[in-house]
Design a protein around this nucleic acid. Structure first.
Length: 291
DNA sequence: AACCTTTACAACCGCGGCCGG
DNA sequence: TCCGGCCGCGGTTGTAAAGGT
């Protein structure tokens, strides 16, 4: 207890950063590191800025591995699909896009993708199509979305996944429609020739019964793009180290490991399991959290 | 050329979780 | 166990640039 307050807002500079300040912060962080304390950093670096402001500036703008602008269609695809699955958890979405920050992704969604989605399918006109609602507890904003498919009841464990955004109902599945016939894969990466061939050429897969077969959307119930694994969204291109992710499941047979991972990343999938005929085959120990 | 509107993006604000005293 | 600071997150605001009238 008794720590000094973060900063005196009246005495620190606010607003846009000058190139000199940028350079000052950059050179300090590169030579000394953050030191685990953003509050103390501005004083050490000789900056008349709030620690929070320094942190934001570094994370969103000055970091050397940051990409600005130039979003690819693939990245848009990922953003839309993840937004459908988990809502406005920008940090989680950004973590799947190397070089992108949560702020950047959030801005891109708000300024570009949201409008794009609205143009494709204005709010409330979703009859006959899949609603692209994120995982949201019953009775929340999702109830405002019209959908031909009733969302399955959420498992208690996943009910913590919420979205505070009222703009959650967008037609990103219309923007990036899954191929027909719609198929679901439950495994990790495999070569997909292109987005347009998404799911049209089933690779060897793992299914709930371990049979390595594919389930059609009609068989499995409501399926939206967010139930497709990330490799589908990226047309097979490696965006992040799957191997590293899977290493945590080393003790599990491959089939279980892939199921566990899928459930971790896409809670909707776990919900789908619960609601589907395959509920009996729901893998044990599903992780419904995303962090 | 002047003014208004829209767009894009940087930055701020406030909240909640975590952790140390 | 409680309190308060730190940190990260998501929502919102501010503002410069671009485009339209």
């Amino acid at each position: 207890m008794g720590r000094a307050p973060c900063c005196d807002k009246a005495s620190v500079k606010r607003g846009p950063w000058s190139p000199e300040e940028d350079e000052q912060l950059r050179s300090y962080v590169q030579s000394h590191g953050i030191g685990g304390n953003w509050i103390a950093l501005p004083q050490k670096a000789g900056l008349n800025r709030c620690g929070k402001s320094c942190r934001l500036r570094w994370l969103n703008y000055l970091r050397p591995d940051i990409k600005h602008g130039g979003y690819t269609e693939q990245e848009e695809h990922i953003i839309c699909s993840l937004y459908n699955s988990i809502g406005s958890r920008w940090s989680v979405i950004a973590s799947k896009l190397p070089g992108r920050t949560d702020n950047d992704v959030k801005n891109y969604w708000n300024t570009k993708l949201k409008k794009k989605a609205m143009a494709v399918q204005p709010r409330g006109s979703g009859a006959g199509t899949f609603s692209a609602a994120p995982a949201t507890p019953p009775g929340s904003v999702q109830s405002q979305c019209t959908s031909s498919m009733q969302a399955p009841a959420l498992s208690p464990a996943s009910s913590s996944v919420t979205s505070s955004s009222g703009d959650a109902c967008f037609a990103t599945t219309t923007m990036y429609p899954p191929a027909v016939p719609q198929l679901i894969r439950f495994d990790a990466p495999a070569a997909a020739a292109s987005q347009t061939e998404l799911a049209s050429v089933p690779p060897a897969t793992v299914t709930p019964d371990g049979g390595g077969s594919w389930a059609s959307a009609a068989e499995a119930g409501a399926v939206s793009l967010d139930d497709v694994f990330l490799s589908e969204l990226t047309a097979g291109e490696q965006l992040f180290p799957y191997a590293d992710l899977f290493s945590g499941f080393a003790g599990l047979p491959d089939s279980k490991a892939t199921l566990e991972l899928s459930a971790c990343y896409f809670p909707n999938m776990a919900e789908m399991w619960a609601a589907s005929d395959h509920a009996h085959a729901k893998p044990q120990g599903l992780c419904n959290t995303l962090t």
